[in-house]
Each structure stands twice: as structure tokens, then as C-alpha cells.
Simulated assay, not measured.
Amino acid sequence: MIDHDLKNSKEVFIKQHYLKYHADQRRPPAWKTLEVVSFGLLSKLYGNLGSSISSKDTIAKELNTVNHTYLRTWLQAISQIRNICAHHGRLWNRNLPGRPKLLPKPPAPWLIDVPPVSVHHMLYVHVCCIKYLLDAISPGHKFSSKLATLFTKYPSVDLNALGFSAIWEKESLWRS
């Protein structure tokens, strides 16, 4: 999969790498390669790292997910949602395949009213995980306001069927 992503990359820096190092049959260095591989592959690479590798927990802590057991499930769930969207699948009123493992005491703003495990197959929990990671990766992003605008634009969407509570926007996660 890595070779496929590298071969199909349209990134100038990858093409220049192969031109400059054409005699070297190895892949470009990780700092270049990981820029062009798919999110799904990154998720699998992270999940397949050995549990004893300290970098795995370091990455998780950087993203405020405490340790690798949580982050792995979040990345897998987000990757599955990405694939559903990429193939024009339906997210509304759907049993999503991934179940992100939720943090008992997250270090960053999270939900006061955490949905029960029985509804973790619905979109809301997954979207909360995306928002939480975005807060760590890209402070100042506009995800919350864009989501609210989308729901305003399409008022016929039943937020309950997506697992959203009536007061989801009042949660500290969505206000930060």
C-alpha cells in the first residue's frame, strides 16, 4: 500500500526525490513518505506498532488521548467514516462499524453528558472524537461552526438519528 501511494503521488517533493535518488531503490525517508500515504494506512501503521514502543504513547499524549489504546480505536473509527464518505455512503441513521474507546478523564475539554456505550455506533461519538483530535492538531479550526451551519442549512436532518443530543452545542467540547 505504501508503494502504491508513493507511485500515485502527484506531490512535487516525491517526484523530485525519485529524480534525485533514482539509483536508490529504497522508499523516500519516513518524513516524506508519511506525507503522502492515506489516512487509513496511517491508522493501520499506528495500530500495528507494538504496544511496548514508547513512541506510540508519546503520539497519543500529543493528541490528548492519554495512551495508545484509545487513539488506535479513534483512528480506526475515523478511517472507516472517511471511507464511507469517500464512497458516497450514508452516515445518517447508520450502524457505524468502529467503536471508539472513550477516555474516562480526558485532559482536554470533552463531554459532560457522555452517551452510553449502546449508542457508540452512531455518528455523534465519532464526530466528538474528530473534534477532540482537531482541537489538539489544529487549534482555531472551524469544525464546530461549520457543523452547526450544516445542520442549520438542513433542518430536516434528524440529529437524534445521528446520536446528537438536543443540547450538544452546549457541551464544553463544542464550545472550545
Rank of each mutant, 00 (worst) to 15 (best):
S176Y: 13
K32Q: 13
K61I: 10
L42E: 01
S145G: 10
W174A: 05
W110P: 03
S176G: 09
N160L: 08
K146H: 14
S43K: 01
G98I: 05
L173H: 10
L49A: 03
K170T: 14
W74R: 04
E169L: 14
V127L: 13
K101V: 11
D3I: 11
R175T: 15
K131A: 08
D57F: 08
V117M: 11
H4V: 06
D135V: 04
G163H: 01
G163F: 05
R175M: 14
Y46F: 13
I84K: 02
S38W: 01
W74V: 04
R90Q: 13
Y46D: 00
V117C: 15
K61R: 12
P100R: 00
R90T: 11
L103P: 03
P29W: 07
P107N: 01
K61D: 11
P109G: 04
R99E: 01
C129F: 05
L75G: 00
V157A: 05
H88Y: 07
K15W: 00
P115I: 06
W92M: 05
V127Y: 08
L173I: 07
I2K: 03
A148M: 09
M122E: 10
Y70V: 05
G140Y: 12
L134N: 02
L91S: 02
D57L: 01
P116F: 05
K153A: 13
I112F: 06
V114R: 09
S51V: 09
W74M: 00
H17Q: 11
I78D: 04
Y154Q: 08
P104D: 07
R90I: 00
P155W: 11
C129T: 09
D135H: 08
D135G: 08
S9F: 07
V119H: 10
S52D: 15
L45M: 09
N64S: 10
P155I: 09
L147N: 01
A30E: 12
S51A: 14
P109D: 02
F39I: 10
P97L: 04
W174M: 07
R82Y: 07
T58K: 05
P97A: 06
Q80F: 06
L75Y: 08
N95V: 07
S38H: 06
S118L: 15
P100H: 03
N48A: 09
N67R: 04
T73S: 12
I14M: 06
L162F: 04
S54Q: 14
K10R: 12
P106N: 09
Y132S: 03
H22E: 10
